[in-house]
Simulated scan of single mutants.
Amino acid sequence: MDNDNLYNLFQNIALGAIAMQSFTHGFHEIAKNKNADQKFPKLEYMFFVLPIVYNKSAMTVFGSSIDLYTAIMKDTSIVLGLQDRANKMVSQSFDAMNLALSKKILVFNRSENLVELGHGFKSRRQITLALDANQTRNSIKMIQECAHRLGNIFAKKNEKNIQLELNIRF
């Protein structure tokens, strides 16, 4: 896929909402089996989804890893500038969250500050986005898989370890 198409794809708010749904589903998939108090990701976690899944090397590394430590060991550069990328993408993350919340793909639990799956989306691992090009569909699928795996990884770690290992602050 050429860079223009990739840029346009990343600017698509619907894709951001789908990535956040995949992240939330991946997080919930692990957290519900851990008997943890927190079965869904905190709102703060959501602002690091797009900066990771929209970074080609990070997407490749997280898409093939099952643990945060092993992901970082595969490519230590994925944590470089992550906080800055998240700060620069905060508007895009808000727009994607707003779309996901308004369409009830995700639900915000104010009392616990958690982002939960919408009622009709609890059993759906992936949402499809109808686009023409086959390469575009493959890119979307890779983004969804990476976001899902990232959710799995975040669910396995406590908040302090996530911040330390990724060199970020919530």
Rank of each mutant, 00 (worst) to 15 (best):
M1L: 10
M1A: 13
N3T: 15
N3P: 04
D4E: 13
N5A: 10
N5E: 15
L9S: 04
F10I: 14
N12F: 10
N12R: 08
I13T: 10
A14W: 08
G16K: 07
G16F: 07
A17K: 02
A19H: 01
M20K: 14
M20V: 08
Q21K: 11
Q21G: 13
S22W: 01
F23V: 11
T24Y: 06
T24M: 01
H25M: 07
H25S: 05
G26F: 04
G26V: 03
G26L: 00
I30N: 05
I30S: 00
N33W: 01
N33V: 04
N33E: 15
K34E: 08
Q38H: 14
F40K: 07
P41I: 11
K42V: 12
K42P: 04
K42G: 09
L43F: 04
L43N: 06
E44I: 08
Y45M: 15
M46C: 09
M46Q: 05
F47L: 03
F48L: 00
V49Q: 03
P51G: 08
I52V: 15
V53K: 03
N55S: 11
N55Y: 05
N55C: 01
K56E: 15
K56F: 09
S57R: 12
M59A: 08
M59L: 11
M59C: 06
F62P: 01
F62R: 03
G63L: 06
S64Q: 13
S65R: 06
S65H: 01
I66E: 11
D67Y: 08
Y69W: 02
Y69G: 06
T70D: 14
T70F: 07
I72T: 00
K74A: 14
T76K: 15
G81M: 04
L82N: 01
D84Q: 10
R85M: 09
R85K: 12
A86H: 02
M89D: 11
V90H: 02
S91A: 09
Q92E: 12
S93V: 04
F94H: 01
F94T: 05
D95W: 00
M97D: 01
A100H: 07
L101C: 02
S102F: 07
K104D: 12
K104Y: 06
I105E: 03
I105Y: 13
L106F: 01
L106N: 11
V107T: 11
F108H: 05
F108Y: 13
F108K: 05
S111Y: 12
L114T: 10
V115G: 00
E116H: 09
L117N: 06
G118R: 00
F121L: 08
S123H: 15
R124A: 14
R125S: 13
R125L: 14
I127M: 08
T128C: 04
T128W: 10
L129Y: 05
L129I: 12
A130K: 13
A130G: 08
L131S: 08
L131K: 07
D132Y: 09
D132W: 07
D132M: 09
A133T: 11
T136G: 05
S139E: 13
S139W: 12
K141H: 15
I143Y: 08
Q144V: 03
E145G: 09
C146N: 02
C146H: 04
A147Y: 00
H148A: 11
A155M: 04
K156Y: 02
N158E: 05
N158G: 08
E159T: 07
K160A: 15
N161H: 13
N161T: 15
N161S: 12
L164I: 09
L164G: 09
E165N: 14
L166D: 08
N167H: 08
N167A: 10
F170I: 12
